[in-house]
Design a protein around this nucleic acid. Structure first.
Lengths: 212, 212
DNA sequence: ACTATGAATTCTGCATACAAAATATTACAT
DNA sequence: ATGTAATATTTTGTATGCAGAATTCATAGT
């Protein structure tokens, strides 16, 4: 088996995102480099490299002389990010092969349906939602676009753990996913893209109240 | 006067982009960290930090064990990037204040017109074009979107110096800019966004032949 | 009690040092 | 002459070290 050989900075970045998803860090928290490096068992150099990439994705901020901290959340920024991914995912969908989309449409519909059935843990929900979107965009040949989408979404993960329990928003999301899938079944690409945009806009509205 | 106090990595990044614009580095060139650091008069640490941010923007690639190199150019990637900025700039335009847009429309038109008049150096042309687009988007309140656009455009600069002499594409671009400005004068936001998208798509087509 | 000033401490930003991987070079065998 | 193995060199990836900025704490003055 090929042993893992990739830069520490990548592994560190991954681990930090994992911890962010677990809600280990509150927004606005300063990062202590020596402490975190010690905790991770690495030196400050690759840690700082990881922090810099995260800052580039908007997960962190850096200020001269006072290091890095998790970027604070705000309704304004959340709105902005939602508008961006909405546009990017719609573009990705529109530049996908229509034939391929029709082929995966049933699967998308199925996923969306048993999405509403089992109301599980928050993390499961998110994973499920992410997988659905990934599958939806799997036919897009624009690699840079897909990379960009993942990068922007990384910047949104800070908002994920604000979405606690409550099933109503979840059911609404599942409904919207169904609507997208149905449009694709009909071969209506533009309609699907519009429905996808709606999904993001509505999702934004749903979250809004929970953000300070 | 407040003296300049910002991280070396930022200044280094800026300097490298400047050199990239000057055409100092060919696409695909490997970067020798010690040599470049010496040339810039800095240590490898902040240089590597700058390289990592540039890699995040797609200007560079990094491979385990063999460092950084300027990402090779390809028609496919250029197409992809154009599609992305087209969508992002259109979004920025659509989420701007219509009243403000109408106000700056005359200026945009004027700039586009004397754009075609003086056919100057390549660098001047690019600067002029950039300024026009910056002004166009200056009314967009979505800060994250504007940041993202500059970041994606940074990844496109590798293609800029391929656009040498020849005035025809330039005149076409100016025409298209005029069209966008005219739509804005009429208060036709959607039309302007569509014209803007066209500008990017056509610009892409124009460049295509010059890319290997 | 509260503010201001200055020392002590903590932490970042940058430089240097070291180890391992990748590349180049040489020697040798076919 | 060509290909290959062994060795030397270069270069990256990571760790450590050091100077200065930012913060904290303590003390003095009002």
């Amino acid at each position: 088996m090929p042993i893992e050989r990739r830069p520490l900075r990548d592994q560190i970045r991954e681990e930090l995102m994992l911890r962010l998803d677990r809600g280990d860090f509150a927004a606005g928290t300063d990062i202590n480099e020596v402490a975190l490096a010690g905790e991770l068992g690495v030196s400050r150099t690759p840690l700082r490299e990881a922090l810099i990439t995260l800052a580039g994705e908007g997960v962190l901020e850096s200020n001269q002389g006072r290091g890095f901290r998790f970027a604070p959340v705000s309704r304004k920024e959340f709105r902005e990010l939602c508008a961006i991914v909405a546009a990017l995912e719609a573009l990705a969908l529109e530049s996908s092969d229509p034939a391929y989309l029709e082929k995966i449409a049933p699967e998308l519909l199925g996923l969306a349906q048993d999405f509403s059935d089992n109301i599980a843990e928050r993390q499961d929900i998110e994973r499920h939602d992410d997988e659905w979107h990934d599958l939806l965009l799997s036919g897009c040949g624009n690699e840079r676009l897909l990379d960009l989408i993942t990068s922007v979404k990384a910047g949104m993960r800070r908002y994920a753990h604000l979405m606690t329990g409550e099933s109503t928003p979840l059911e609404r999301a599942a409904e919207e996913h169904c609507r997208v899938a149905e449009r694709l079944l009909d071969g209506d690409l533009e309609g699907a893209a519009a429905a996808l945009r709606d999904n993001w806009v509505n999702g934004m509205e749903r979250m809004m109240s929970r953000i300070p």
